[in-house]
Nucleic acid binder design. Structure first.
Length: 420
RNA sequence: GUGGGUGUAGCUCAGCUGGCAGAGCGCCAGGUUGUGGUCCUGGAUGUCGUGGGUUCAAGUCCCAUCACUCACCCCA
């Protein structure tokens, strides 16, 4: 124990688990890159007003979860609670929307929300996101969803379910919203929930309390209120997903926490994470650009939770490929002359693209071999006075235990050959 | 903001109705003065989260406090 520890709701990523996090980030990023999405990186903080406007004043994120601070100059800034608002801001700021559409971008980074931590919910968390901006084409929705499904599949997750819904648009949603409000007002609800009826009634559908859920069974569903355009759009998305072989479940109760979503919304959930079952989610946000002062820019995107995906992998007992690798070679010197020679050979190996480590600290041979073993190296290079005077080093295969002398000037080529 | 659970060795945890601080794993050393992963032997490491109280005596009981954790509201 030390005097200091990581702040509440945060955690350190340390080996060996940190390798899994890297692998998850990489797998998620890779599917986006393969599909022509370019990397975008925006600041970790933005003008507070961007999130208030973008995420929505009525969302809980804005009302109670933002890390907001005032600069010396008097500006109000906020650590980003999510990625989409920042990306849309960047696209508009740099006029990317004036070029070829859709603009396809992906990102990977840290996000911040001030909440009570629990399993899968942290104050500092990690997401990989992808956004396709400026195209109102059901195939884009489908591409986005398929990419996320592919990322989870590449990682080896099996128990992932895709939930799908539509939230309608500016034409039909208000009608549904009014009907829902009327229904909700007739229920027996606590004060906070009653307040939400006026602010964002859709979110009441998401309540998990049994006494609330019981009353929601006969709630009106959006499907009955969709306008023709939204209905057609949603049917198209559904049928394209089916043609593409992507399994999904219609979930008319699926509402998301951010105010900007329109039409397609979806969530990837995993059973086995505890209460925080969503490992990724997203949807279409056709009105967000205009909300932020830009032109109409119908867009769709997702964010996948890196931390939660790691939890899901653990729950399934899946080992991520490539996350447990050590170095290729470990050097074990005996005596001062060998220390200098082997240290030099380690540099040569590294320059040749072979990962290599070294027994530092003048350990005894036994201790150094132990270190070699723990490093996960495939080969150990051992050398002492005897070998040096013969211009060789001992190359030991740590799996088979076989050991052969190799001339010093042929070590790098010999190892490269064996590793290929 | 609300409710539950847990704080004992580096890690995972045991420790009964109060009576000398424990195990497994890991770590270090030796068995093997030039060879790891198996095996054997030995060793080190604790303000029992913190502060107070009850008691002859507190890891154990009581109070407070802090931390962690799970869940609710809500969300990736």
């Amino acid at each position: 124990m030390s005097t200091y520890q990581a702040p509440k709701g945060t955690f350190d990523l340390i080996p060996p688990k940190s390798a899994t996090f890297l692998a998850v980030r990489e797998a998620m990023s890779a599917v986006a890159r393969r599909a022509g999405y370019g990397y975008v990186e925006t600041p970790a903080f933005e003008d507070t007003a961007l999130f208030k406007r973008g995420v929505g004043e009525s969302s809980d994120i804005v009302t109670k979860e933002m890390y907001t601070f005032t600069t010396r100059g008097g500006d109000s800034l906020t650590l980003r609670p999510e990625g989409t608002a920042s990306v849309v801001r960047a696209v508009l700021q740099h006029n990317l929307d004036k070029g070829a559409l859709p603009v396809k971008l992906y990102y990977s980074g840290s996000y911040f929300r001030y909440e009570r931590p629990q399993k899968g919910r942290y104050r500092h968390f990690s997401q990989v996101g992808a956004e396709a901006l400026g195209s109102e084409d059901p195939l884009v929705d489908v591409e986005i969803i398929m990419l996320a499904a592919e990322a989870f599949r590449d990682l080896g997750l099996r128990q992932v379910r895709l939930l799908l819904n539509t939230l309608g648009d500016s034409e039909c949603r208000p009608v549904y919203r009014a009907a829902l409000q009327q229904f909700l007002r007739g229920l027996d609800l606590d004060e906070d929930t009653r307040a939400r009826i006026d602010i964002n009634p859709l979110r009441v559908l998401d309540d998990k309390r049994p006494e609330v859920r019981a009353q929601l069974t006969d709630a009106p569903v959006i499907a009955d209120y969709l306008c023709d355009a939204c209905k057609a759009y949603h049917e198209e998305v559904r049928s394209l997903l089916s043609i593409g072989g992507v399994a999904f479940e219609d979930d008319p109760r699926l509402v998301r926490g951010l105010d900007y979503y329109t039409r397609t919304t979806f969530e990837f959930v995993h059973d086995g994470l505890g209460a925080q079952s969503a490992i990724g989610g997203g949807g279409r946000y056709d009105g967000l650009s205009q909300e932020l002062g830009g032109p109409p820019l119908p867009s769709v995107g997702w964010a996948l939770g890196v931390d939660r995906t790691v939890l899901a992998l653990e729950a399934e007992g899946v080992a991520v490929p490539g996350s447990g690798r050590g170095v290729d070679v470990f050097a074990v010197p005996l005596g001062e002359a060998a220390r200098h020679l082997l240290f030099g050979l380690v540099q040569k190996l590294r320059r040749a693209g072979v990962s290599a480590d070294f027994a530092f600290g003048g350990k005894g041979l036994k201790g150094a071999m132990k270190a070699a073993d723990r490093s996960g190296a495939r080969y150990a290079v051992v050398a002492g006075e005897r070998d040096l005077s013969a211009d060789v080093v001992q190359l030991k295969d740590l799996e088979s235990g076989e050991q052969v002398p190799v001339p010093i000037d042929r070590l790098v080529s010999t190892i490269k050959e064996k590793l290929s």
